[in-house]
């Protein structure tokens, strides 16, 4: 068995990667504090419990990402000759499963409340000798759960796109789902205060739909990665033109008659095969080595593109 060489990331990308890891650590800390605060103000409101459970689930994607970062650093070895890059795909799958579950849970829970016409009871609580409506306390807690993910999500999305980190890209969506759920919770509690028993559930239903659709999209993406689907852009979700670009580049070489490339994503990097029809066998090994060097400069994400000379395509 010959293991692959290690993937080396360009310096500027490495800096972004470090920023991203720090951001995810911070994110994990903030989410943990939100879980604690919401637990303290929860009371016996069903809607609040759902929001809290959701926040517990949101701990999964950053943990999955940070664990994958740890394993990804390992050099390919005899047992894992292709290396550990694909740990990222596993983390990505985890993240999208969580997002989908969140959405389905919110949908199911709010539908249940609407169908059974359950009413949310929020009572009064004694603070410093006065009795206040507990709804105000819950709103304060939810406000705290809305503000950090609103900003963190935006930063995540930006940096994740530059380093092709789908896990964090999905986590940015989780952040978005998170703050939107918090806002829905606030609107719901204010509605409950007005005597609209359905306000809470309707708000949660709308958000649940949005989160489920996001989750489904990323789940499809993760399964696609596992099935070695051609690389797709994380922002648009459309197929990338990288394979075609590489074919053109190879065909631009004087000695190449025709070239065909197929690529797959291995987490944040891309690998694949290129088949070329050379015009002669003259100095073929040297030409192939030069071609290999050239194509690897085309995109920083290219990890291993194996170039194979063939007689016909």
């Amino acid at each position: 068995m010959t293991p692959r060489p290690r993937y080396v990331m360009p310096e500027d990308k490495k800096a972004n990667m470090r920023k991203l890891a720090l951001l995810e650590w911070a994110n994990l800390g903030v989410r943990f504090s939100i879980v604690t605060v919401l637990y303290l103000v929860m009371g016996n409101s069903q809607a609040m419990k759902a929001a809290w459970l959701e926040d517990v689930l949101t701990l999964v994607p950053p943990i999955a990402f940070l664990i994958s970062l740890y394993f990804r650093k390992r050099t390919p070895d005899k047992s894992f000759p292709y290396g550990y890059q694909r740990v990222t795909v596993i983390a990505f799958l985890c993240g999208s499963v969580v997002l989908t579950l969140l959405g389905l849970y919110l949908l199911g829970d709010s539908l249940h409340v609407l169908i059974k016409q359950e009413r949310t009871s929020i009572g009064g609580i004694e603070l410093f000798g006065d009795t206040y409506w507990q709804g105000w306390l819950m709103i304060a807690g939810l406000l705290y759960s809305v503000i950090p993910p609103f900003f963190i999500g935006r930063i995540q999305e930006k940096i994740a796109a530059t380093v092709h980190e789908k896990t964090v890209y999905v986590d940015a969506r989780v952040s978005k789902a998170d703050w939107m759920t918090g806002v829905a919770g606030i609107v719901g509690i204010l509605g409950v205060g007005l005597g609209w028993w359905w306000a809470d559930a309707v708000a949660a239903l709308v958000i649940g739909l949005d989160v489920t659709l996001d989750g489904y999209r990323y789940l499809k993406e993760a399964i696609g990665d596992l099935l070695d689907r051609r690389p797709h852009d994380i922002r648009t979700g459309k197929p990338e033109r990288l394979a075609e670009e590489l074919e053109q580049q190879l065909e631009s070489l004087a000695w190449v008659t025709r070239a065909a490339v197929r690529l797959r994503e291995e987490g944040n990097v891309i690998s694949g095969e290129a088949f070329v029809i050379p015009d002669s066998d003259d100095q073929l090994v040297a030409k192939l080595a030069a071609a290999r060097e050239m194509v690897h400069k085309q995109d920083w994400r290219l990890y291993e593109l194996v170039i194979i000379p063939v007689a016909e395509l």
Binding site: I122, G124, W197
Partner: peptide, 16 residues
């Protein structure tokens, strides 16, 4: 009764 939050506030304030 469930959802009677104004009434509950009255009860709670009185009890407290």
């Amino acid at each position: 009764p469930p959802g009677e939050n104004g009434w509950m506030m009255e009860i709670q304030t009185y009890l407290n």
